[in-house]
Each structure stands twice: as C-alpha cells, then as structure tokens.
Measured scan of single mutants.
Amino acid sequence: KSEISQVFEIALKRNLPVNFEVARESGPPHMKNFVTKVSVGEFVGEGEGKSKKISKKNAAIAVLEEL
C-alpha cells in the first residue's frame, strides 16, 4: 500500500480529518520544487519533492511517523 492510502486508512479508523495542500512552489518552471503539508487531526507532516506527487508522498511518510 502507498503511504498516502495508509494515512487515509489510519485517519478513517481514528475518525480524524485529512487535508493535503501544496504549501510552496519554488524554482524555475523547468525545475520546480514543491512542499506539501498534510494534517491528520492535530498531527502535521511536511514533504518536499521535485513534483507534487513526490512531495505528497514525503508528507504522508512524515505524518505516518507521528501517527
């Protein structure tokens, strides 16, 4: 299972809201860097990556460590 689906499963079991959002985009158009924030109830994680998908996955990994 992907880290993102694990976050949603845990949140569902604990009845917590999940929110993913792109917090920052930086860099030139051909080499963008994304920072995504995820919140699961009061737990927050942040991930960085060269694409929105990678930064979302890294944010999920960060919040899984707290859950």
Rank of each mutant, 00 (worst) to 15 (best):
S55A: 11
G49C: 00
A62R: 11
G27Q: 08
I61C: 11
Q6T: 09
L67P: 04
A60F: 12
V35W: 09
N58C: 05
K53I: 08
L12W: 12
F8V: 09
P17K: 14
L67S: 03
K32R: 12
G45R: 08
F20H: 02
P29A: 14
L16G: 01
I61S: 13
F20L: 07
R14H: 10
V40G: 02
A23F: 11
K52M: 07
K53C: 07
S2M: 09
A60V: 04
P29W: 07
I54Y: 03
A62T: 06
V35P: 04
G47N: 01
E42Y: 11
E66K: 15
K13F: 05
I61D: 04
I61Y: 05
G45M: 03
N58G: 02
H30Q: 11
E42P: 15
N58L: 09
S51L: 01
N58Q: 11
K50A: 13
F43E: 05
V35R: 15
I54T: 11
V63E: 04
F8S: 06
K37R: 14
H30L: 08
N33A: 09
E65P: 06
N33P: 06
T36P: 02
E3I: 14
K52C: 05
V63W: 01
K37N: 07
I54F: 02
A23I: 14
E21K: 13
P17M: 10
K37I: 04
I61M: 11
S26T: 15
V35Y: 10
M31D: 15
E9D: 13
H30G: 13
R24W: 08
G27W: 05
G27R: 08
M31F: 08
V38R: 02
S2G: 10
T36I: 00
T36V: 02
F8D: 06
L67G: 05
L64R: 04
I4M: 07
A62V: 06
E65F: 02
V63H: 01
A62N: 15
P28N: 10
L67I: 11
G47L: 00
N58H: 07
I4V: 12
S39H: 12
V22S: 12
R24I: 10
L16K: 05
F43Q: 06
E66Y: 15
S39Q: 13
V63P: 03
N15Q: 10
V44Y: 11
N33R: 14
R14W: 08
P17T: 14
V44S: 12
P29N: 14
F34T: 05
K37A: 07
P17N: 11
F20S: 05
P17I: 07
P29Q: 13
P29Y: 08
E48T: 15
S39R: 14
P28V: 07
L64A: 05
V18H: 01
E25V: 13
S51N: 11
G41R: 00
M31T: 14
I61E: 08
E3M: 04
N19T: 15
R24A: 10
E42C: 10
N58M: 12
V40R: 01
G41W: 01
P28W: 07
I54R: 08
E3F: 10
I54P: 02
H30C: 09
T36C: 15
R14Y: 13
G45Q: 06
A60H: 01
K13E: 09
E9I: 04
P29S: 13
G49V: 02
G49W: 00
V44I: 13
A11W: 00
G49S: 05
G49R: 02
I4D: 06
V44C: 14
I4K: 04
V40H: 01
N58E: 08
E65A: 13
V38N: 05
L12E: 12
S55G: 01
V18D: 01
F20C: 06
F20A: 04
L67R: 01
A59C: 02
K53R: 13
G49K: 00
S5T: 02
Q6S: 08
V18S: 05
E25F: 11
K37E: 04
A60L: 06
G45K: 11
V18E: 04
A62H: 08
L16Y: 05
V63Y: 00
G41F: 00
L16Q: 11
V7E: 05
E3P: 13
E21N: 08
Q6M: 10
F20I: 11
V40L: 09
V44P: 01
L67C: 02
L64P: 05
G27N: 07
M31W: 09
P29F: 07
I61W: 03
N33F: 07
K50V: 11
I54C: 08
K50S: 14
P17Q: 13
A23R: 14
E9G: 05
A62Q: 12
P29D: 13
V22K: 15
S39C: 12
K37S: 06
P29C: 09
S2I: 00
S55R: 00
K1E: 08
V18I: 10
E42R: 13
I4L: 07
E46D: 01
E3Q: 08
F34C: 04
L12Q: 14
E66Q: 15
V38G: 04
M31Q: 15
F8W: 15
V40P: 05
A59W: 00
E3H: 09
M31S: 15
E3L: 08
G27T: 07
L16R: 03
E25P: 09
K56L: 06
G49Q: 01
K13R: 12
T36F: 00
N15T: 05
E25Y: 10
L16W: 12
E3Y: 11
E42N: 14
E65W: 06
N33D: 06
I54G: 06
N15P: 00
L12F: 12
V7W: 00
